[in-house]
Design a protein around this nucleic acid. Structure first.
Lengths: 298, 298
DNA sequence: ATAATAGTGTCTGTAAGACACTATAGT
DNA sequence: ACTATAGTGTCTTACAGACACTATTAT
């Protein structure tokens, strides 16, 4: 009998194994870099307005030349996915030691005109104070876009075979004169026992690839995680007022919250410090709080 | 000036673009195929016992020859990740039209001794009645293993810099005489604002690759999703009793629940039918229920 | 006094957890 | 009568939502 793979030791097998003989896709990492950034104020007495922002880069090369895209790049053979994400993050924002989470891996066939490219999407949350607004390598144009997301259309159809529910999310990304609008249709089908959620880009201005879909999913994830984790505090400075924290929640969730209820909800997640805000113009100073790392029960 | 990429149209750029010039990793899909399977009963009057089961295959080739692994395989260039998952699923269990969800994509450098292989893990939930117990292609040995998961060790350390909390999860996979035990350490570090969760295999009998870690993560995900989605019903037949549903919850969560409270909790997710169980030996017959596709509020 | 933010008290309804109770089948 | 499962009622506690109220600052 010939020396088949069954007779080899694992080491012998590995020595003979040539991975490059097989077809392989390319793999990239794309990152949603999100931050809560203060707006310029007009009324001197009012609180500073904040907004959820996302960092995009203008593509200088084909494909999608001139369009805006999530920062990202190819995974090198000596890098884990996470390492790639951290490298990209460092290149674009010059920060490290920030929150980073894998969102989803997109592997559809025609998502990239260059060929078969699978992309693992990550989400990073950055405290606005750590960010140098227009960092990035000189040649690349990077900009922060304010993120607005709202449902502009819903439909619920109940038939004999099941329920189909769709929501069209309008994602607006705004930087001064530039406004990028996309509509992502999120469809939930329940047929028999099966619930399937699909996302599809319906309209898209100047966002490259399937990035509108990735951004919509990231926002949805952030919105749900803000409720049961302490993820928000990655977007906050060391010390903050409860009003600042509330506005951060409101801008992420896209709706206003009642103060008294909000304070009760976050009470266990924060610790009161002895300090108060000093720059109070015409109103009572606010106590400063910090994150309580022991907020979790178990 | 030469004809650089800046002067090309997108089509010209793509025609010249050769993706194979760059280093590429290989990509596989691994699937957690889970089902709730009835046990053989001993006491003729008692309810049939159920258990959460996972389908594993015995590896016939290197690496990890002779060890047990999640079903999976390489992503072909003409397949999306999902298509690959469905293909593998069909090959191993001969079912289609079942619940399938992407879990996480594992991209560490040394997770596969054959080389740089990134794996996207999927979780599939199958109604036990759809499954032919020992399907699979003839040459491959596939078996259902009962899944038991419990925390055997916890440690919580509160220092000045933050909180470190670790839990050792013992995963036992049992098929008759074969018992595969692994311990996966889940560590949550909170330093400053940052919360990082890492998973590491501490001990491992005969599970291949990093599959023990993937299985632990899948169970955790299933446990949390069972609370806020209708994912369980993928594991149930068309009609079921509330006791059957409760036992399914209990086996997934690894703890017993109080009947009255459980019934209140799932009340909105099910619809009562006019039918009852017919094979009642020595006790009151139970009403049969079906899934309510409209259980969700909004 | 005014305009702004900071912060608290209370009522309601809903849901979860614990526990005790009643109902109905076959033997 | 007994054993098993099926199914209900109620008490307590906790929390979320709505809303009204008090407190404190600079001008």
């Amino acid at each position: 009998m010939k020396n088949t793979s069954k007779d080899l030791t694992e080491q012998e097998f590995l020595n003979e194994y040539d991975i490059t003989k097989f077809d392989r896709p390319s793999v990239t990492v794309d990152i949603l870099i999100l931050s809560i950034i203060n707006e310029d104020t007009d009324n001197y007495r009012k609180l500073i307005n904040k907004n959820l922002n996302i960092l995009l880069i203008k593509r200088l090369e084909h494909p999608f030349k001139g369009k805006w895209a999530l920062p990202g790049g190819f995974v090198k053979l000596n890098e884990s996915l996470e390492t790639t994400a951290y490298r990209e993050l460092k290149e674009e924002t010059n920060v490290s030691d920030v929150y980073l989470e894998q969102l989803y891996t997109y592997g559809n066939l025609n998502r990239d005109p260059r060929g078969r490219i699978i992309s693992s999407a990550y989400m990073s949350l950055i405290d606005s104070k750590k960010v140098t607004p227009q960092a990035g390598t000189d040649a690349i144009e990077t900009r922060w876009f304010k993120v607005y997301s709202k449902v502009i259309n819903t439909k619920k159809e109940t038939t004999q075979i099941g329920v189909i529910e769709l929501k069209d999310h309008e994602i607006s990304l705004v930087n001064d004169d530039i406004v990028l609008k996309s509509i992502v249709r999120v469809e939930k089908k329940t047929i028999g026992h099966q619930e399937v959620t699909t996302r599809r880009i319906i309209s898209n201005d100047d966002l490259a690839f399937d990035h509108a879909e990735i951004i919509q999913y990231g926002i949805e994830r952030l919105r749900s995680k803000i409720e049961y984790t302490s993820i928000v505090f990655n977007l906050m400075p060391e010390l903050f007022t409860l009003s600042e924290l509330q506005m951060t929640y409101e801008k992420i969730l896209g709706k206003e919250l009642l103060k008294a209820n909000f304070r009760r909800k976050v009470a266990k997640k924060v610790i009161e410090t002895s300090q108060v805000t000093g720059d109070n113009i015409g109103h009572r100073p606010a106590k400063l709080f910090k994150f309580n790392p022991c907020w979790n029960k178990d």
